[in-house]
Design a protein around this nucleic acid. Structure first.
Lengths: 109, 109
DNA sequence: CAGTTATATAACCAAAAGGTTATAATCGCT
DNA sequence: AGCGATTATAACCTTTTGGTTATATAACTG
């Protein structure tokens, strides 16, 4: 089974998740709205189900899929160690631009 | 070229990033510390370089690689839409446990 | 200059993954 | 019971990918 990182690496699966973020959905709805073949959608949904990112509710012959964002927390945690780094980066950039702005103002006097 | 999602989907590449998070490193250091073959490390480093997650500093025959967390911000942004969802989930869980605790306390009286 | 060290790349292989087509299973409806 | 709709699965193909082995390149070292 694929881990959460591999699951969200696939663009179509991210589209499915993004769609489910809006509202629960049946398979047919996903097929129509995402423009992917039904077997492909079902295949991706199976993976999403197995990795715990979606849950199913059986309604007669329909399956209503709903999002469970829980497993994404793992990735968020992993990212947290890097968050300060790119802030650092942006901070450095902002500082750089500030200095540039300052020296421009200086030379404008 | 692989996008940032696909890049971090690979466990060995995450290990490289995690290592570079601690400090800059040469290829040989990475090979020794991660226990992967040199060509494989070089291959991963190339991908990481192409996706902008690392930068190289040439020091004679050595290449010092350093982390650039910038591209990870994209994933962080994508996750942000889901963050409220799993908080919601955790909140619901906490609430559930609270209710259980309350009813236990009730019945204990 | 010869040999050693550090790194990248090429060629190759096996396994996995995304996608398709065809088919099965299940339920509601008439 | 029979039919259409909904979903899952099986079988298959092609491309990609992680990994290995072998080789090239380049710089330091004695």
């Amino acid at each position: 089974m694929l881990d959460t990182y591999a699951i969200i690496a696939e663009p179509s699966r991210r589209r499915i998740l993004d769609r489910l973020l809006q509202s629960d959905s049946s398979v047919t709805e996903l097929v129509e709205e995402l423009g992917l073949s039904q077997p492909l959608i079902s295949k991706h949904l199976r993976m999403l189900r197995e990795s715990g990112l979606v849950r199913v509710q059986v309604k007669a012959q329909h399956r209503i899929y709903c999002l469970d964002a829980g497993p994404l927390a793992e990735i968020d945690e992993w990212l947290s160690a890097y968050r300060k780094k790119w802030n650092q980066h942006v901070d450095a950039l902002v500082e750089h631009l500030d200095r540039r702005k300052l020296s421009k103002e200086e030379s404008a006097k």
